[in-house]
């Protein structure tokens, strides 16, 4: 009974297929396309008078120049933009010179005013020499500057410190949360191992494996991740160098990387004496 897989598969596929066309057609959104232009209208368009035809052909002839017009137009626009920009730059340059001149004038006048006021203060107050007074004021202002700088630095330090403490707290809480999750996971694994050993199933602990490839498989409507691994060290029941497929337990999802070597713990879903197909599930790594 030699039957062709191709024929049998085609027959099977065709026999299973439902007719969904009506359902699909009913839900199709309309498109505003040319296809609904009926053949009659197309014929009408083709049967236009000679004048119309000439007009259309002239139009078509003109159409071939459209890209050229477009390019020329774009180039012209570009030229205008470049010209405008360069002009603007020149203007800006002039403005900047004027501004610089104005700033220099302003600074000069300001310095003159300051020296005047210094003289007045000196005369009315302590009778210090002009130079001394100026020096003193200069020092004071300098000190003030230093104080201001210091207070700013202090503020910054405080801010940084508070920021740092916030970060540390956040990190601590995050690490606590991670730690809790890890310990919960550990507990779950331990309880799973105990449960499995009660069932008499084999648990292969701390086996060194290399992950050859990783793929997803839809089993009973669920997506599961499967790792194809090669055992770098043999266990009691599996020889070194054997390639097995490890299915992931819901506890452990997508974590192993292809080509990497891991120390893993996995279990066999059948007891060793069972000769039927054995499946392996990842427990921890």
């Amino acid at each position: 009974m030699n039957k062709s897989i191709k024929t049998e598969l085609d027959n099977l596929i065709n026999s299973q297929t439902p007719d969904l066309w009506d359902r699909i057609e009913a839900s199709l959104p309309e498109k505003s396309g040319v296809a609904f232009v009926g053949t009659e209208r197309m014929a009408q368009a083709e049967g236009y008078g000679n004048n119309k035809q000439n007009h259309l052909s002239k139009k078509n002839k003109n159409k071939k120049w459209y890209p050229v017009y477009g390019t020329v137009g774009a180039a012209a626009c570009l030229c205008v933009v470049i010209f405008a920009l360069s002009k603007n730059n020149l203007l800006l340059g002039t403005n900047m010179t004027e501004t610089a001149e104005y700033t220099a004038d302003y600074l000069e006048s300001k310095t003159a005013e300051e020296s005047d006021s210094a003289e007045i203060t000196y005369e009315s107050a302590e009778g210090y020499g002009e130079t001394n007074y100026e020096e003193a004021e200069y020092e004071e202002s300098d000190c003030a500057g230093v104080t201001n700088n210091m207070s700013e630095e202090l503020a910054e330090e405080e801010f940084t410190a508070s920021d740092f403490s916030d970060n540390v707290m956040a990190e601590e809480s995050a690490s606590e949360a991670t730690g809790e999750m890890e310990s919960e996971k550990e507990k779950a694994v331990q309880s799973k191992i105990e449960e499995l050993s009660k069932q008499g199933l084999t648990i292969h602990e701390n086996v060194s494996v290399k992950v050859d490839c990783r793929f997803e498989e839809a089993v009973e409507g669920e997506l599961i991740i499967i790792y194809e691994v090669t055992l770098l060290k043999g266990t009691e029941f599996i020889e070194e160098g054997t390639t097995i497929q490890l299915k992931t337990d819901p506890l452990f999802e997508d974590s192993l990387k292809e080509g990497e070597i891991y120390q893993i713990t996995f279990y066999d879903n059948k007891p060793p004496y069972d000769s039927s197909n054995h499946e392996y599930f990842l427990l921890k790594y």
């Binding site: 297929t17 066309w21 498109k31 040319v34």
Partner: peptide, 18 residues
């Protein structure tokens, strides 16, 4: 693309079972 449903039906008939 132009809104011809018959074209979709052709694709449907060719690939629906598969």
């Amino acid at each position: 693309k132009q809104g011809d449903k018959n074209a979709l039906k052709d694709v449907y008939e060719a690939y629906m079972p598969y």
